[in-house]
């Protein structure tokens, strides 16, 4: 079994969105970084499935930190597609496809259903089409069988069941599993695991980001309630108590 997991470095945003002066990105001076929550579950699932696990990201040189985090919980090696700017989903998928073609074939290619930041909802699907592979998205359960994978997707009070032959591309959602925290020995081992760095050329952006904007109406002035009687009075006025 060989599994590739594609992840994206994103800031841990906290309580408020603050942009850089040029409006091109979030101000991250005071923020830590992680990978998108759905992807944490993808990495955990790949490690549980077993076999060789390769983790790939497209991002800045600093994204090595996120690849090492994934290696600390069990991924065997990393591929960093090093970029200096944000890439749109279409060109991201193209670079990932090029990287996959340079590798021995994978049985499973896992993505988060959408990234936490740009949320384009499409990189995994584009990669599947380019490689001629079946794809199932939005999964909260994966069972790998002999040459096949059975998967389930929540659809509001029910679960839709799909099956796909391997190799396949799957995109997953948080809730698929409860990701482990990296252990100290895991972190130490991760430091010496292999990491390949490639610098792809950035194609013309067809969904061309011009600027980011913080939406209006994020600074409400809440009415302060002093005691339980006032709270219940509000609930009654809203017709819920």
């Amino acid at each position: 079994m060989r599994t590739l997991v594609c992840v994206k470095r994103v800031p841990m945003t906290g309580g408020k969105m603050v942009l850089t002066a040029d409006g091109q990105a979030l101000e991250t001076k005071h923020l830590g970084f992680t990978i998108s929550p759905h992807e944490e579950c993808a990495v955990e699932e790949a490690v549980r499935i077993g076999g060789e696990v390769v983790v790939l990201t497209l991002g800045p040189a600093e994204a090595e930190e996120q690849l090492r985090d994934c290696m600390a919980i069990g991924a065997d090696r990393g591929i960093l597609l090093k970029t200096s700017e944000e890439w749109d989903a279409q060109s991201t998928a193209g670079a990932i496809v090029d990287a996959i073609r340079g590798e021995e074939a994978f049985d499973l290619i896992l993505f988060g259903n959408e990234s936490a930041d740009a949320a384009g909802f499409q990189v995994g699907i584009r990669v599947a089409h380019a490689l001629g592979l079946p794809v199932v998205t939005g999964l909260k359960k994966i069972e790998v069988g002999e040459g096949r994978v059975r998967c389930e997707r929540d659809v509001g009070g029910a679960r839709d069941v799909y099956e796909a032959p391997l190799p396949a591309v799957l995109t997953v959602l948080e809730g698929l599993n409860l990701p482990r925290y990296p252990s100290v020995p895991g972190r130490l081992r991760a430091k010496s695991k292999p990491l390949a760095v490639v610098e792809p050329a950035r194609p013309e952006q067809k969904l061309e980001k011009l600027r980011l904007v913080v939406p209006e109406g994020q600074g409400k002035q809440a009415e302060v309630l002093e005691d339980a009687a006032q709270v219940v009075a509000v609930m009654q006025s809203l017709g819920v108590a």
Binding site: T13, E114, A116, A119, L207
Partner: peptide, 25 residues
């Protein structure tokens, strides 16, 4: 994905689950 306004080639779309907007061509 998740556009809230469009004017010709210009779209405004939602990022970060609605905490941020992107203006793009």
């Amino acid at each position: 994905a998740n556009v809230i306004a469009i004017d010709g080639d210009m779209v405004t779309r939602v990022r970060w689950g609605g905490s941020l907007l992107e203006e793009a061509r």
